[in-house]
Design a protein around this nucleic acid. Structure first.
Lengths: 348, 348
DNA sequence: ACTAGCACTCTCATCTGTTGAGTGCTAATT
DNA sequence: AATTAGCACTCAACAGATGAGAGTGCTAGT
């Protein structure tokens, strides 16, 4: 175990490096953190901390910067019970402001808030989409050639899309709605997908075949990675002092690859929070850290939210923001979840 | 007027600079464009072209690069009847692929296609939103606490939003729909906005006051700049060889400022295409050119589309893409415009 | 255990010389 | 009058060289 002084010094290095992104010298630590001890003493401590793997020297006559191990230690030991400021909480609350209830909007708002509060890039990945089940489908005629299809699921995910449809007569859409709800309502997306082929060829549905196919396509597109990975604040990397043009390019090409981002954010099997620091196995972005959290509504996991930033990120702030936003989403959504959609619609 | 040879040389400089972003030397021009004349001759021509203001030397012993005037001349004289390749046209058509009919989606797709085909940043600004009029409003109950409001306008702009509403009994939403259509249907957004105050306080609407307010807010938010400026491909600037970290930062902060972008794209009073080259009055981005086009549906102007790229951009390609995408949008939308929404709904 | 002192190392910035690309000019040629 | 070969000139870019400054590691003394 590290001596108290070593811990203080280690924390000092991490804190200062988080602030300034520059190597920290023994003199600087002495000035800001110690009255009773000289720089030389701190130097020997720094030297042993380096031997232990906590610190790294960019070159012989530079100060020290923290290694991933140091961040790890910092996170594990100095991160207890930090809370957000009242203004920050108010900002978050104001953003959600219950003006909307659609999951797409909430998730997008959450990503934006997380990114804005932390000043890092945020990512939200929606998961378990196959387990979502459909509560009902509405079809609203717009004119004689098109209609709006609204798909309502449990956990409130609403997706809608305008489709082309030849509404032969007035009852066409009403009949179609009844039939389509008979087919889809109460079934999970995974279930529907696995039986997609058989549903398509059912002969008795001939009249509605085209309409059915359109709706099928909407449902199948739910899984589309493009729709289930939301990123915000990518451009903030340009403001980090350590960012070069080259690294910015790499970062952006990683961020645009929804598949790897999704993998990066979601591999924290069953822990509430996960921190990845400096594991360069995550190819593409070097010197980056990733903090992720599982998000649930009513105890049911709906996805993961993450923050991608430099290793020297403000971990405590990131974690508190992720946590607070997660709770906020949960409290917004939990009442809508178990409501019965079909209450005033006996015909479906 | 410029001699034929001067024109050839000027075109050569612009073409080569567009390709390589490097100053062009007399020798290079001689090799690629002239068999019958020596580099020295070209040198004298270059020198006079420089005196005339068409060319610029970064430093004494460098080649020439085109000035804004050169691009202007290039655009005015060498840009006639260039058309897209068949594959390119097919790519564009495939993107639109009539899978969707909603203006938001079409505009987003258009922005993406324009950016992808040109490899520059694209911007689309929707205009004249106040002149859009509402064809009808639908309210679909989702559960006993929330409903989906769908606003359908001429020119097919559909906006929908989930709102909180206390549906007291089964006929509540139906009654509300009738009343709300009585108030809003057939009126333009501008009209509604200017009379917003009076509508809100009408006493007889007390039962639906809350609902009415929600819908009012949705309509008012139509104008929101955030919603009417769509950008795509911002990150492509990082791939230009002339981009520095600093200029990338400037560019991104300009692009994020929807208000200036909107002004930048929309100030081409009544010309079909507009090219701004090197006018640094547009503060923020230096060495950038902006090509904009007016977009209309059925002859009615709906907005402006633009491409922002380096001065040395491939103007002919940009213009053909803008033009082709504009026509495509028009042909997709024109049939839906004059359809009568209320055909099978006599109750509204 | 701590510290003062000093030699050592390495970056960063500045300067210098060299190279090569490309020009401008001039005198000769067509 | 237009073109060209030839040559001196300019300047950016590169590579060393040099010095200053920051910060360390080590050692001897407290």
């Amino acid at each position: 175990m590290l001596s108290t002084r070593k811990q203080t010094i280690l924390k000092a290095v991490v804190d200062e490096y988080i602030k300034g992104a520059l190597p920290i010298s023994s003199g600087e630590i002495k000035n800001k953190y110690f009255d009773d001890v000289s720089a030389a003493t701190i130097r020997t401590e720094l030297s042993t901390l380096e031997d232990m793997g906590y610190l790294v020297q960019p070159h012989t006559s530079a100060g020290r910067i923290p290694s991933p191990l140091a961040y790890r230690f910092y996170v594990d030991n100095f991160l207890r019970d930090k809370t957000l400021k009242i203004e920050e909480i108010e900002t978050i609350n104001a953003s959600f402001n219950n003006k909307f209830l659609r999951v797409e909007e909430i998730v997008k708002t959450a990503a934006k808030v997380i990114s804005d509060m932390t000043n890092y890039t945020s990512v939200i990945v929606l998961k378990n989409i196959n387990k979502v089940y459909i509560k009902g489908i509405k079809i609203i005629g717009l004119d004689d050639k098109s209609a709006l299809v609204v798909i309502i699921t449990d956990s409130g995910i609403i997706r809608d899309k305008v489709i082309l449809v030849d509404a032969q007569d007035e009852s066409f859409l009403a009949d179609a709605t009844v039939l389509i709800n008979k087919i889809f309502a109460g079934r999970s997306l995974g279930d529907i997908k696995s039986k997609a082929a058989s549903a398509r060829v059912d002969a008795e549905l001939n009249t509605f075949r085209e309409l059915l196919n359109s709706i099928m396509n909407i449902i199948l597109s739910y899984e589309d990675e493009t729709n289930s990975v939301i990123t915000e604040g990518e451009k903030k990397v340009l403001d980090y002092p350590e960012t070069s043009l080259e690294s910015a390019r790499n970062f952006f090409s990683l961020i645009d690859d929804k598949k790897s981002i999704s993998a990066l954010i979601c591999d924290n099997a069953d822990i509430e929070f996960s921190l990845k620091i400096g594991k360069s196995e995550t190819n593409g972005i070097d010197k980056c850290a990733v903090v992720t959290a599982r998000y649930s509504i009513n105890g049911k996991e709906i996805g993961h939210a993450g923050v991608i930033g430099p290793e020297r990120m403000d971990y405590s702030k990131v974690i508190s923001v992720l946590s607070y936003v997660g709770n906020t989403i949960n409290s917004i959504m939990e009442n809508t979840d178990d409501a019965d959609l079909n209450k005033d619609e006996p015909e479906v």
